[in-house]
């Protein structure tokens, strides 16, 4: 059991929304991973769809490189569409 691989679980809470990372679990294969995800993460009606992926297949950015990766975007306010006057009737923007 100690050498069972780790899986990351993504759940779509309702149709139209995207899958969101909710946590991880151990399982021997993808079938078991899906069932375990169903039992552990959807018992309170959280989802309509599940993705599981073995954690080893996820490539993550290095926290130490956060400076060069993300900071340059911080002072580029002109990349946000905030310079338009929106009519009041427009919702969900």
């Amino acid at each position: 059991m100690k050498n069972w691989p780790l899986w990351e679980v993504f759940i779509r809470s309702k149709n139209g929304l995207h899958h969101k990372h909710v946590g991880s679990l151990h399982a021997t294969d993808e079938k078991m991973a899906l069932e375990n995800a169903r039992d552990v993460y959807t018992r309170r009606n959280e989802g309509v769809s599940i993705w599981v992926v073995e954690s080893k297949y996820i490539t993550a950015s290095n926290p130490e490189e956060a400076g060069e990766l993300f900071e340059p975007a911080q002072d580029k306010v002109y990349r946000h569409p905030t310079f338009y006057d929106l009519p009041n009737e427009l919702e969900h923007i």
């Binding site: 679990l25 151990h26 399982a27 375990n36 039992d39 552990v40 018992r43």
Partner: peptide, 12 residues
């Protein structure tokens, strides 16, 4: 349960 995931499956 033998593992947390199965523990929850059985109680579900």
């Amino acid at each position: 349960g033998p593992i947390l995931e199965v523990d929850m499956a059985l109680t579900n």
